[in-house]
């Protein structure tokens, strides 16, 4: 890889053991600002464990992480959010009965006070949510007053992403299977959202099973197999066949190149 930019987050020699089971063995990972890194691999290849370490849910058994050249240690997911790494889960973790704005600000509501008593400022939350969705993701919802479950899959994704990009000074957005449950049209919209986030200079890490989607959205593809990094390829210089070969272990040429 020939990058002029320095990675915003890098992981070196990450190993994770659960009791006697080794989930990850000596794995490296680099997230570059303004780039989309896709992580692919078979079930049990260690993608999820790697992502959970990146988002502070798990702590590595060995290895180190750096953010902007400084050592990065995260004790919890809340810690990772505070440091600018947040995740959007496959289930999106939205409260379906709440409005998009209420979801975006859930747990960190905006308030105003009257005679020293603080209460929710719904108007400001709605305006802010509308602004973030429009300015950062290019999304305009039909109405901000409907429950979130009446939105389409892509719009719900937008709300979940908006929550992540708003709540912190976000540097890295991790997305777990963002297109798994979506139809072709909604997938295209989600890819657009990912592009929008990328174009704002954030590093995006995407786990996906769909090589089609991976080749449409990513700048690099990191292939995992049996807890190890098989290789990293530049998406524009690779093919589906090559990546597929690396996933199933037919060819290991990518490993040396990385």
């Amino acid at each position: 890889m020939t990058e002029t930019d320095a990675p915003v987050v890098s992981m070196r020699g990450i190993t994770k053991r659960f009791g006697g089971v080794t989930a990850l063995e000596d794995v490296d990972l680099d997230v570059y600002p303004g780039k989309v890194l896709a992580i692919v691999g078979d079930n049990g290849a260690g993608k999820s464990t790697l992502i959970k370490i990146l988002t502070g849910v798990y702590q590595p058994t060995a290895g180190e992480m750096m953010m902007d050249g400084k050592a990065l240690v995260m004790a919890s997911h809340a810690d990772s959010i505070a440091k600018g790494i947040d995740a959007v889960y496959q289930t999106l973790a939205l409260a379906d009965h709440l409005t998009p704005a209420a979801n975006m600000f859930l747990g960190s509501e905006l308030t105003k006070s009257f005679l020293g008593y603080r209460y929710l400022d719904n108007a400001r939350m709605k305006a802010e949510a509308e602004r973030v969705l429009k300015e950062r993701l290019g999304v305009v919802l039909r109405s901000m007053d409907v429950p979130t479950d009446s939105l389409s899959g892509g719009q719900r994704q937008a709300v979940a992403i908006a929550r992540a990009v708003y709540s912190t000074d976000l540097k890295v957005l991790v997305m777990d299977e963002p297109t798994a449950a979506l139809g072709p049209q909604e997938t295209a919209r989600t890819l657009k959202l990912i592009e929008a986030v990328r174009d704002q200079g954030l590093g995006v890490v995407v786990i996906s099973h769909s090589l089609d989607d991976v080749f449409r959205m990513s700048d690099h593809v990191q292939v995992m197999r049996r807890g190890r990094r098989v290789g990293v390829v530049k998406t524009s210089e690779s093919t589906t066949q090559e990546v597929l070969g690396m996933i199933v272990g037919a060819s290991d040429q990518g490993g040396a190149a990385a």
């Binding site: 973790a93 409260a95 379906d96 009965h97 709440l98 859930l106």
Partner: peptide, 12 residues
């Protein structure tokens, strides 16, 4: 707000 969120999706 939290009552609504808890009833809607406790995990979220």
């Amino acid at each position: 707000r939290y009552a609504q969120a808890v009833g809607s999706n406790p995990e979220a």
